[in-house]
Computed example of a mutant assay.
Amino acid sequence: MRPLPSPARNPYWRFLVAGVRGQSAYPLATLAGLTANATFGLLKGGIMGAAVDSSGGELAGYSAATMAAFVWLGQGMLGSVNFWGGSDLQNRIRTGDVAVDFLRPVSVQAAHVLTDIGKGLFALLPRGLPSVVIGLLVSHMALPPDATAYALGLVSLLIGIAVSHATVYLVATTGLWLVETRGVSVLYMSLSGFLAGLYTPVYLYPDWLLTLALCTPFPSMMQLPIDVLSGRVTGADAGQHLAVQLGWLAAVLVAGHLATRAGRRRLEVQGG
């Protein structure tokens, strides 16, 4: 019987590990990110808490505890979820280095998405988890009711990170036609956080805007994982959240694959 191949020899596993290692090389940047998360978490927590109190203790189904969970879990995810639209692929397309990527016997999409996911996974420990611990110390944030909810929350979080980076890859592929994609990145940055629930729960939006947000992949990056992680949804509702996230992950991956194939045929490097 042939021995099973070691994961360490799998090139795609190595891309994931490379992302983790690459991000770990910047401890001061990670510390600065944690400081920013804590600072803005305190400000945001005070504002959202006051909004709940002024509404009689409940706002769009949020109590003080669940709103605190929304704030601090969101702050903990900031280092892992890409709302800024930037990626290494954008620079490689602009400089022409992406031509080398296309010559390699691996998927360009998988290589870049897995590397970015690795960076996001690393940020969970030195930046994400401490942010949540700070939230637990300064507020009475809600927690999942049982171990199953914790497990589902972790799965939802990982899917949200993957959706984020797969979508940013799709944004970067526009460079195969446009070359300069800073405008597209700014548009993505403007829309993604707002529709994902970065600033306020999407359930506070007017019905038409909430419907619009739910028709995009952005809530799957933050709002839905927070719902599951905080225990705001459990059981079948949590399973439905995960199904929606998986659907969007599949959609953006397929869109990224098709865009890569189509853009590769149009790519020009140094005029030809």
Rank of each mutant, 00 (worst) to 15 (best):
L246H: 05
L136V: 04
G135A: 11
L34E: 02
F122W: 15
L73R: 01
V98S: 03
D146T: 07
V81I: 07
T148I: 10
L198V: 07
G49P: 07
L157H: 00
V133C: 01
A25S: 15
G85R: 09
A60D: 07
M189C: 05
A65H: 11
L195G: 03
L258N: 06
K44T: 10
Y12S: 01
H112D: 12
W84V: 09
P126K: 06
G272E: 14
A250N: 05
T260A: 10
S131E: 04
L178N: 04
A68K: 01
R9P: 13
P7K: 03
E58H: 07
L129A: 01
R127P: 03
E268K: 11
F122I: 02
A251C: 05
T260M: 13
L214R: 15
L246N: 02
S54F: 02
L154H: 04
L249H: 12
G183N: 12
M141F: 05
P144N: 00
G153M: 01
G57L: 12
P126H: 13
F194D: 02
S55R: 03
M48K: 00
D207K: 10
Y26I: 01
V113R: 11
G120P: 03
A243N: 06
P144R: 00
R104Q: 15
V132K: 00
R21D: 06
T211R: 13
R265A: 14
S80F: 02
L34S: 05
M67T: 01
D88Q: 13
V20A: 07
S156P: 10
L195R: 01
L4S: 10
V138D: 03
Q90W: 09
L242T: 00
S230M: 03
R2E: 14
V133K: 00
A18G: 09
D116W: 06
G57R: 08
A51R: 14
G263L: 10
P206K: 08
D97E: 15
E58A: 12
T234E: 15
L59H: 11
S192H: 09
F15G: 08
V133H: 03
A250T: 12
T66A: 08
F194R: 05
L258H: 08
P7E: 09
L212N: 14
G61I: 02
F40N: 00
L212A: 15
F70W: 14
A147E: 11
A142Q: 15
D88I: 02
L16H: 08
A25L: 11
A255R: 02
L89F: 11
R92D: 15
W177S: 09
L204N: 10
R261T: 06
A213R: 06
F70N: 00
A25R: 15
D101G: 08
I117N: 04
S156Y: 04
Q90F: 09
F40D: 00
P217G: 04
Q270V: 12
H140L: 03
T174G: 15
A65V: 04
V52K: 06
S190G: 13
V71L: 11
A147L: 13
